[in-house]
Nucleic acid binder design. Structure first.
Lengths: 207, 207
DNA sequence: TCCGTTCTTGAATCATTACTCAACAACACT
DNA sequence: AGTGTTGTTGAGTAATGATTCAAGAACGGA
């Protein structure tokens, strides 16, 4: 499928990964409907023709941005957990770390999770995006579930614990924490909340 | 400021409360940006002129709808709690009841909370709505806080418990529960999650 | 230098957006 | 019935929405 020696194409001038990163930032901050093509053009520094040639549509761009966001989040979780021998302690610190992250203002485009924002914005209007968000959240639940399964096998958890069920409780904690963070609570209160959520896991630990 | 006996006005033909109820349903289901004036006209069975004469603007209508939603939610909480001697048991059943409510499909326009949907959709685009949502959530936190304060005075809670802090944990549980419900989990799993959240409160109970 | 291919450009397109207003309708009172 | 006030109507407006496409620009190889 190579061009047979004559007339090699012009290479793209934009940086696809850079553009996607900018798209994540904009969508994360303003949402799907809140981000107009004009704003997207400005954020990506691309003209409409290039955007449509590259990503197909606004939906296509949003979908790719969402995927990229989810992959980055998954990598971040894996990286974090790699630093812990104890799964439970790793997850507890993960919750505390999220709370702290919501504290440092102006770093992330939004405190709430882009996947949750997508789910809530698109649930009754945009079937495709809603399903994508649901699939991503299902995969994250699965990751948590595997971590907790492993923890149970290592004797960190009570034998009565259902890893899938606890994974959902954990996921809902993160959803709640990052959503309530949009209330602009004082930093100390948010960190306390992260701590309280971390302590919930203590009840599931083996004695 | 009464009209001096001559020429009394035509009374409104629509039912303001009915219209507001329909607006709540539409906005709750589709969000702010997802609800066009055309859809609003259809839902309220009112023509644009009447809508603007009555509510001022789309923002004004949304704002009133949000207020109405919050008042209904507050009344529902008060009504629920009136049936309990124990505050903690009341709140635990409240969580379980929310989970069950997310189960009965097609009853509510959306499982997620309209206030949270508003907060997430408007946080970086629509300052007025965002502030209103924050104020409402602050008032709800306050209600929980007072209930928990009362519970502590009655000796239901450990003395070390900070009611405000626990109120925020409780509010974040509800946010998480109703948000994750948009994932369309099986009914049993959602009810289990509601139960797990209710059990979190056990750790704060006096022995 | 010229060619062929691909990428970029941005004015133009058509749909939809929130919103207005002049004309009309309906009622309570005399 | 007549009158004054207010409610209702819906075609119309100006702005903005996402998207297209013909023309030109940039490069590697001949």
């Amino acid at each position: 499928m190579t061009t047979d020696g004559i007339g090699m194409p012009r290479p793209p001038s934009y940086d696809r990964e850079y553009a996607l990163g900018r798209a994540v930032s904009l969508f994360w901050k303003k949402g799907y409907h809140g981000s107009s093509m004009k704003q997207i053009e400005q954020a990506l520094d691309m003209r409409p023709g290039s955007i449509y040639a590259t990503f197909g549509s606004k939906d296509g761009l949003y979908s790719e941005a969402l995927t990229r966001y989810a992959e980055a989040g998954g990598a971040e979780l894996a990286e974090h957990m790699a630093g812990y021998d104890s799964v439970i302690e790793g997850l507890q610190d993960y919750l505390r770390r999220i709370a702290q992250g919501c504290t440092r203002k102006g770093v992330a485009p939004s405190r709430a999770c882009l996947i949750v924002k997508t789910l809530l914005e698109s649930s009754n209007t945009h079937a495709g995006l809603s399903e994508q968000a649901q699939a991503i959240l299902g995969a994250i639940e699965q990751s948590f579930s595997e971590l907790l399964e492993q923890a149970r096998e290592y004797g960190e958890l009570k034998e009565s614990v259902d890893p899938g069920r606890l994974a959902r409780l954990l996921q809902s904690q993160i959803m709640g924490l990052r959503s309530i963070a949009e209330r602009n609570l004082p930093d100390a209160e948010l960190e306390d909340l992260g701590d309280d959520m971390a302590r919930i896991l203590d009840a599931y630990r083996a004695d």
